[in-house]
């Protein structure tokens, strides 16, 4: 059988890739997608722990996280649309009014 730590390593790798995406992407949509990827990597770890402990509570948590991801995507994309309408760009380097 595949050890549980292998799944966790995959989850951690996906989380790290999502971090890279959040840090390096200048595109607001790709940034939102990277956040989704990080949420999914947390889901993978929840499922893996749920299997290894033989407790199904992790599945319920994954459902809640999926719901939050959906809500976040909807609100985030609405904000992207509003930003694009006002500034004609989704390059996050252009949104620097509050930058110190």
């Amino acid at each position: 059988m595949v050890p549980i730590s292998a799944y966790l390593i995959v989850g951690v790798a996906l989380f790290a890739i999502g971090t890279v995406g959040v840090l390096i992407s200048r595109n607001l949509i790709v940034l939102l997608m990277s956040v989704e990827l990080m949420l999914n990597s947390a889901n993978l770890c929840l499922i893996a722990f749920s299997r290894s402990q033989n407790i199904m509570d992790g599945h319920a948590f994954v459902f809640l996280v999926l719901t939050i991801a959906a809500a976040e995507a909807a609100v985030g994309l609405a904000m992207v649309i509003t930003l694009y309408r006002n500034r004609e760009t989704i390059n996050i380097d252009r949104f620097n009014l509050l930058k110190w």
């Binding site: 719901t67 609100v75 609405a78 649309i81």
Partner: peptide
């Protein structure tokens, strides 16, 4: 409730 508020929020924002 979270989904409902997200729907309303998205509609209002966009």
């Amino acid at each position: 409730v979270l989904l409902l508020s997200a729907i309303v929020g998205a509609v209002i924002i966009a």
